[in-house]
Every structure is written in C-alpha cells, then in structure tokens.
C-alpha cells in the first residue's frame, strides 16, 4: 500500500486507522469470514450475515452512553426539523425593527436579532435547513463516491488510476476553498451550497469504498460469483457493496457532521441561504457586527451548530467502535 493511498488528510474519521491498510483490515473484519461457504443460488443467505452484524453493532452501540445520547438528540433534531413550523412561537422571517437586539426574556427566550426577528424561532427554522442540506449533500457525495470507488476498486488498472488521480486533484485544494470556488461558478443560494458541499466530499467516499472493495474482492465467494457467471454490476451491487455497507454508514454519519459545518461556513461567508430565510451560519454572519452590543445573537445559533455536529461526531465514533471487532473485544 503506497502512502498516497492514505486516507483523506486531517480527517476526523481516520484517526486511529491512518493508513488505507488499516481501513482494509477494518473492512475485512466486517466482510464474510473465511471458511464461510456461501450458497450463490440464493441471494438471501448473503444478507444473513450482515443482519447478524447489525444486531452485534446495536448491542455494542447500546453500551456506549455518549453515542446513545447523541442518537436520541439526533432523533430530537429530526422531530424539530419535521414539525418546526408548528413549534415556532413567532414567524421566523418577520422583522420588527422597534424590537431589535432585545436580550433573552420571557417573550423571546433567545432574544431578538438586529432586525427584531425572534432568534428562538429562527434557530428552530434553521434546524430543517441544516439537516436537509447535510443529508442531501451526503447523499450526492455517497451516490457518486460509491460508484466511483466501487468501479475503481473492482476493475483496478487504468480505470482505477484515472479515477483516483482525479480524486487526488480534488483533495489537493482544501475542501472549503473548493466549495466556495464552486459557489462562485454556480452562484449563491442554499441549493447551490448543497451541490458544492456534496461534490467536494466525493473523494473521501470514493476512497473508503475503494479500500473496502479491494479487500472484499479477494474473498473466495467473489471468485465463486465470477465462476457462476454473474455480471460485474450484479457482483458489485449485490455481493461486494453490502459487505462494505457498515463502513460506508460510519463515514456517512461523520460526513453529515462535516456537511453541517460546511453549510454553516458558507452561510457565514454570505454564500448560503438568501435573506430573510433562517440558517444558523448565516445568522452568525449577519449578527457579527453586534458582538459586543448583543452577544446573545451569536450564542444560540453557534450552539445549535456545535451541538448538532457534536452529536453526529459522537454517533459516528460510536458506530465505528461498534463495527471494529478489535474495539468490540475490549
């Protein structure tokens, strides 16, 4: 394994498994163990093992207090995002200049911002934006990254070289800089932000999927699938990818946290939502001038971003530990 195959620089998820070799080992632990004799006429048997694996994972996750609390918090966030409009005491986009920059009080528990809008209502409304952007951006990155990574890892050779070199090019520009460069081309707006954030995180998914594929495709049952005469696409999607699924899920969970962070960063720079729509990073960017005059305008949106990111990070960490057989033994 050459050093340029090492995983995404400075990445949260890779701490403790800093080489692609370690990733492969991790993936290996989740793949079908040697000695298992799969029956290829019946696809269902292949799914039996992963299911057992989910059960094992859940058991391990349940023992992890931090991850469990995070999961509960994420469910809570999702509920807020879904029922947001029913929960906001005020219209989150209604300005009320006479009532601007009021500190937290009984009427406005998080206070009001520079335009007199209720910060509590805006934080709630922003939950939907952040979670949606996070989820959509990760979905874009995942679907493209999985296909690229699977094709590169499965076929190898020049296809692998071309795909991975393009990924290297994308990785040689810091992701936030690449994202705002994309925004320059696409134009401002939250829909553009989703695309930009999604596109820049493709390489990390492609790499992790490729790493898993490389280890899984050496298994006997894949060779057997070839012998039986299954098509490449079928082997990749039915037999190889399901075994890499757990690794992908961990990465996607951590990916949501970085997508939420990136969304907030783009919003902070004024490239995200268009006013008056509420978005956490945008709220911070616009209230920045009132830092000494009305600090409450900056506390609550920032706290919302941090807690959301923290929850996805803790859950992702918990899932990774739950999947790692080495950690499970301890």
């Amino acid at each position: 394994m050459a050093p340029w195959d090492r995983d995404v620089p400075g990445d949260f998820a890779e701490i403790g498994s800093e080489t692609a070799a370690a990733d492969e080992a991790l993936a290996m632990g989740t793949a079908l163990p040697d000695g298992e004799i799969p029956v290829f006429e019946d696809d269902e048997t292949l799914h039996e093992k992963p299911e057992k694996q989910w059960l094992e994972m859940w058991r391990s996750l349940r023992a992890n207090k931090a991850a469990l609390v995070s999961l509960v918090f994420i469910v809570f966030l999702v509920l807020i995002a879904v029922f947001g409009p029913l929960l906001t005491p005020y219209n989150p986009v209604e300005t009320h200049m006479a009532n601007a920059l009021k500190p937290p009080s009984a009427e406005h528990i998080f206070g009001t911002d520079q335009l007199g809008m209720d910060i509590f209502s805006r934080v709630i409304a922003g939950t939907r934006v952040s979670l949606t952007v996070g989820l959509l951006a990760v979905s874009i990155a995942l679907s493209i990254g999985i296909v690229l990574g699977a094709v590169a890892g499965y076929f190898g050779g020049w296809i692998d070289t071309v795909i991975m070199r393009v990924m290297d090019m994308m990785l040689s520009v810091p992701s936030i800089l690449l994202a705002i460069t994309l925004m320059a081309a696409l134009g401002k707006g939250i829909d553009k932000a989703v695309i930009a954030i999604g596109l820049v995180s493709i390489p990390e998914y492609a790499r992790i999927v490729r790493g898993s594929i490389l280890s899984i495709k050496e298994n006997d049952y894949i060779a057997a699938a070839h012998v039986v005469g299954l098509t490449d696409a079928r082997i990749i999607f039915r037999h190889v990818l399901p075994n890499a699924l757990s690794v992908i899920i961990v990465r996607a969970t951590l990916g949501i946290s970085s997508a939420v962070l990136d969304t907030a960063a783009l919003g902070f720079l004024g490239l995200g939502v268009q006013p008056p729509q509420a978005e956490w990073g945008d709220m911070l960017g616009r209230a920045r001038g009132f830092i000494f005059q009305a600090p409450h305008t900056l506390i609550f949106p920032g706290l919302a971003i941090t807690l959301t990111v923290l929850a996805f990070n803790l859950l992702g960490d918990g899932l990774r530990d739950a999947l790692d057989p080495r950690a499970r033994i301890k």
């Binding site: 960063a265 911070l284 600090p295 900056l298 920032g302």
Partner: peptide
Amino acid sequence: ALIGVSVPIFWLGILFIMFFSGVLHLLPS
C-alpha cells in the same frame, strides 16, 4: 479533542473575541 473538531472555527473566533476582547479587555478583536 472532541470539542475541537465539533466547534465551527468561526464561532470559536467569535467566542474568543467576546471573552478576551469583550469581557477581559485583554486582546485586540
């Protein structure tokens, strides 16, 4: 370490300014 990877750096900067420049008047903002 966990806080370090979860706090957005621009918000961290804002908190620093509030505290070190606003409350303590120790450092320029």
